[in-house]
Structure formats: C-alpha cells, structure tokens
C-alpha cells in the first residue's frame, strides 16, 4: 500500500496531451491493453499493485474540469463508505474499510460525496479549487443544530 495516495503512474497526463496514432491512421479494430503484464488476477489486486499501461485512463487526469473541490476532514468521518460507493469517478480512496482521501487526478468536483455524507457537520465539503486543504479545514463549520 506504499504509494496509494501519491501513485506516480496516476494522472500523469492531460487528456489528449499525447497522440499515439492519429485517428485517421487507425485501421478498423484496435485493442488497448490496460496493463503492461499479465492481467489474469487483476481483480485480486489494488491499484497500487497493478502495472497499468499508458492506455489506462488511470494514468490520465481530469483535474482541470474542476472549479470546486471536495475537501475531506478525517476528524469527523465515521468511515461509513457512502462517499466511496457513490463517487462516479472512483475518486474516494478507501483501504481496509477506512477512507484515506480524495484522488484529485480523477475527481471532477460533482459534489455527490458531500451530499451523501451523513455526519454533522459533514466530513466532506466543497471549497474553491485554489484554497489549500489546510485552510479549508481551518474554516470547517461546527455542528449544526437540528431544526425543530
């Protein structure tokens, strides 16, 4: 689990940054291999233990799509895994039933994770893309009173 949060391979490239073969040079039928080596037991391995090829979108980033980003606050989180199951971009990193953080290479800033977080205050909140996570956590709201 060494490099799960800062996996070197992840999000190396902007989409479309590099062209292998022009679209007009492709003959009918193309096979893209997601992995460099034998992929037979891929379902038994975590991302950090797989050898992704440059064809896997795992190695690409969509970070530039975001204008707002979710920030994760470990202190409040109860590891319910709601954010993990509903993230449409496989961007909540969970290992051994604990949330480790957000994959900012693949997160598009949709805000679904914040909506489904059940804690009070929420353990995930949206902030401007430019704000640092430390600054965001420093302005975390306090517990909201239940409306009568």
């Amino acid at each position: 689990m060494s490099n799960v949060l800062s996996n070197k391979k992840r999000g190396m490239r902007e989409l479309g940054a590099e062209k292998k073969v022009g679209w007009d040079e492709v003959t009918h039928g193309v096979i893209l291999h997601s992995f460099e080596d034998d992929a037979t037991d891929v379902a038994k391995r975590k991302a950090e233990d797989r050898n992704y090829s440059d064809f896997s979108s795992y190695t690409a980033t969509v970070a530039s799509w975001r204008v707002i980003k979710p920030v994760y606050n470990r202190d409040i989180c109860i590891d319910c895994q709601n954010c993990w199951v509903w993230c449409p971009d496989s961007s909540i990193i969970s290992r051994d039933k604990q949330i480790l953080g957000i994959d900012y290479d693949h997160c598009k800033g949709c805000g679904v994770c914040v909506e489904v977080c059940p804690t009070n205050p929420k353990s995930l909140l949206m902030f401007g893309e430019a704000l640092s996570s430390e600054d965001a956590i420093a302005q975390w709201p306090v517990k909201e009173k239940k409306e009568k």
Binding site: L15, Y58, V85, S90, K97, H106, K108
Partner: peptide
Amino acid sequence: NLKEFSTTNERFEGAHLLCPGCAHSMIVRE
C-alpha cells in the same frame, strides 16, 4: 454492508469523460 463491500478491488478507472455526477458510472462501477 458497505464497509465489507469497500474492500473490493476497483476495476473501473477514473478519468473517463462522463459528465460530473453521471449515474452510468455508479452502476458500471458497482
């Protein structure tokens, strides 16, 4: 339960181009 389920090994990768919040990927991923 969700905690158990979350120990699975993901096989649907990010940086696809579905709209932010698209449910297609929630279904496929699951």
